[in-house]
Design a binder for these strands. Structure first.
Lengths: 268, 268
DNA sequence: CGTTCACTTGACTACGTTCAAGAAGGGTGG
DNA sequence: CCACCCTTCTTGAACGTAGTCAAGTGAACG
């Protein structure tokens, strides 16, 4: 059962789930009692399954539906200036994919495992959204989570050493999969080395070398290439912290000397 | 008036503005007639001003309000593993900042120009949100815009040549500032070289060298360090396209041979 | 059992970082 | 108004790390 850590889902309830932390509650409160929100979606959702490697949607094509992932994992891709594409994120159970701009999908979404999802047609979805503030609010919370993940991605690929990126990546995956459980835990990496390389923005070779280095120093243990156990979190933390002078200490030193001395912003 | 390109705002109307494109309309339709949405916010907003270098909010502090920017520009910072901080985005007039997670600000927001903003206390804001689906919907659209910007940021800093990053950055700034206007246009860069460096994830030295290179080849013209005019968009495009083998062509070749031959996902 | 693709390992090159020093801009004080 | 100071920015030179090309290994599948 270890491999399913990233793919697990509460199978007791059925139907699409929009589950995100509330931005302004300090405790771990959810955006809204999930049952209420999900009931709004149950009527318009249909179950779809994808095989590994299949596309859930493609960047630039007309956006006809969104997808709430029930089980499995996907990678989200974006075209790059040089005609290639690049992984900008991974999504798992309970995540929402298929976001659109100007009526077209923003990213290409590809199943990296066998996938089960709830398909939510946009017309019906939009009708419900404009009548249920709770539902939109829950989706907004989900969106901000995605925003934060994207920002974290930028921070991740700002580490220079490839091992540092991999170390951070593995720790975040474990945090996402493990949540509350402590102790040593093997986790399943559903994505290929190539996809990891694209996400970390390093060459596949560098990913290999970084895995090798982590193995060499004993911070991780790898089985069958896709099962990873973190043996030494501290060592990984140490790698993530690089000597690089990334604007240490307080940001930019506050108001420059040229500004008025009174500190408080004026409220009119 | 050229310098105000990035800072301009429709001064005809007053009050906070939530203005984002509708995700599912192909034309440039807005999320909702702005007047309706903004009227909801007018009652709870107060005007605040910040001087250059002042902080609108700080990462980790209790989130008491959000801010709708009326004029000026800000930079958003995130702490990095090595105790430093890093620019994850720039926001301008009509943008929303001060997003939170678990009751605390997610980023540090710093004014890079004199700033005017509408302050929206979270309690009042949340009350309005939970009663006005249109309002939440508009904010969700804004959030997805921010998400896309963050993803684009990741794509931007995936270019390894520093000139490529700068070229892309300048083009995006111009696109954001200029919108519809064609032709040569000088634009104002409100942020410092150091902030640009942090956002592009290169050293300040590399930013200098990249500016020098763009100048040398005549693609841009710079005045007083902060006024830039793009002379040759094609040259900048060419720089942004690097030889790098970034997974060219179709992503990952579709379903691997191991999968069933039938192509369509099964809809239950 | 053979073929294919993904992954790994090795050597060379190139770009950016770093360290160090110098130039320029803005603000303050005289 | 000018001179001074501080900060920011620019330029230069050596090092380090990842990219690239190339070959080799392993696994998965037919």
């Amino acid at each position: 059962m270890a491999p399913s850590a990233l793919l697990r889902r509460d199978t007791a309830r059925m139907g699409p789930v929009i589950d995100a932390p509330h931005p302004w509650r300090e405790d771990g409160a959810r955006a809204k009692a999930a049952e209420v929100v999900d009931a709004q979606l149950a009527g318009i959702a249909s179950i779809v399954r994808f095989r590994r490697g299949e596309f859930v949607c493609r960047e630039g094509e007309p956006a006809v539906a969104m997808f709430s992932l029930a089980s499995g994992a996907v990678s989200s891709w974006l075209h790059t200036p040089e005609q290639g594409q690049q992984v900008v994120g991974f999504q798992f159970a309970n995540d929402l994919v298929g976001f659109a701009r100007a009526g077209r999908y923003r990213t290409t979404v590809k199943a990296v495992t066998p996938l089960t999802a709830y398909r939510l047609p946009v017309e019906a979805l939009e009708r419900r959204l404009l009548r249920n503030p709770d539902l939109v609010f829950a989706i907004a919370c989900k969106l901000s989570d995605d925003l934060y993940a994207a920002q974290d991605h930028a921070v991740l690929i700002s580490r220079h050493r490839a091992v540092a990126r991999l170390a951070l990546f593995l720790q975040r995956l474990e945090a996402r999969a493990g949540d509350e459980r402590g102790g040593l835990r093997e986790m399943f990496l559903p994505m290929s080395r190539t996809e990891i390389a694209s996400y970390l923005n390093v060459s596949p070779e560098a990913v290999s070398r970084s895995f090798a280095e982590l193995l060499r120093q004993g911070s991780i243990r790898v089985r069958e290439r896709r099962y990873v156990m973190i043996m030494d979190h501290a060592a990984l933390d140490a790698l993530a912290v690089e000597p690089r002078a990334a604007l240490e200490g307080e940001v930019g030193g506050g108001p420059p000397p040229g500004c008025d001395p009174d500190d408080a912003p004026c409220v009119l």
